[in-house]
């Protein structure tokens, strides 16, 4: 990717499918899978992560010329932690119920590898506009993938979506889907579907395993 390139559709859209942070890069799963047991939880978690992704990316991109290389990771982490703390208090101010449902996992956005990964790989090398658009795309891809996961788990595991009953009393919910094993299994099935679609379209997308390369 040449640095002189302007903002193109790909700057945004790469995050949606080709470089989808969840389905391709398998980044940022750790703190987010735990709260993907309902549509509303996963949507709020996705939006909170997107906000941190965009704002920390913007600040890092603006400051990229003033941050010495040796202390860059420390600076990035402090910036990210600042924005996460802000999100944490904002969610408490909006709704305590939501805050209680997400628990400590909001604060764990700090160690979401996708944010530090994007800061290092993109925001520190690109101008503000491009960084924001790219972060928006990544955040959207992340939120969509997480929301799909949460919606599937809630529909199968509780028979409802956003708390609205879908099937009536005759439906016996698959409780295991909203329990931890359901998170692993549904995500695995989503990856299978993603790989299947790509194989049919003849696309070759290398999935990474965990965020080992991001560190």
């Amino acid at each position: 990717m040449s640095k002189k390139d302007g903002i193109t559709w790909e700057t945004f859209a790469d995050g949606l499918w080709r470089d989808n942070p969840v389905l391709v890069m398998l980044l940022g799963l750790c703190p987010t899978l735990a709260v993907s047991n309902s549509a509303i939880n996963s949507l709020s978690m996705g939006l909170a992560t997107t906000f941190v992704l965009i704002s920390s990316g913007a600040l890092i991109s603006l400051l990229r010329r003033f941050i010495p290389r040796q202390v860059r990771i420390a600076t990035y982490i402090v910036i990210i932690a600042t924005f996460v703390t802000m999100v944490d208090y904002t969610i408490q101010a909006i709704s305590l119920d939501l805050y209680n449902a997400l628990g400590a996992f909001i604060q764990l956005i700090v160690v979401n590898c996708i944010i530090l990964g994007r800061a290092e790989a993109y925001a520190s090398k690109n101008p503000l506009g491009k960084t924001v658009v790219n972060a928006l795309g990544m955040g959207t891809g992340f939120t969509l993938a997480l929301f799909t996961l949460g919606a599937i788990r809630e529909i199968l595991g509780a028979g409802s979506l956003f708390g609205v009953d879908l099937f009536g009393p005759s439906f016996e919910p698959w409780v295991v889907m909203i329990l931890p094993p359901g998170g692993f299994i549904v995500l695995s099935l989503m990856l299978l579907a993603f790989n299947f679609i790509n194989a049919r379209a003849g696309r070759k997308i290398e999935q990474s395993e965990g965020c080992s390369h991001a560190a």
């Binding site: 400051l63 941050i67 202390v71 402090v78 910036i79 600042t82």
Partner: peptide
């Protein structure tokens, strides 16, 4: 300077 500045800002 960078670390101090960032700490102040955050």
């Amino acid at each position: 300077a960078a670390l101090g500045g960032i700490a102040m800002l955050s």
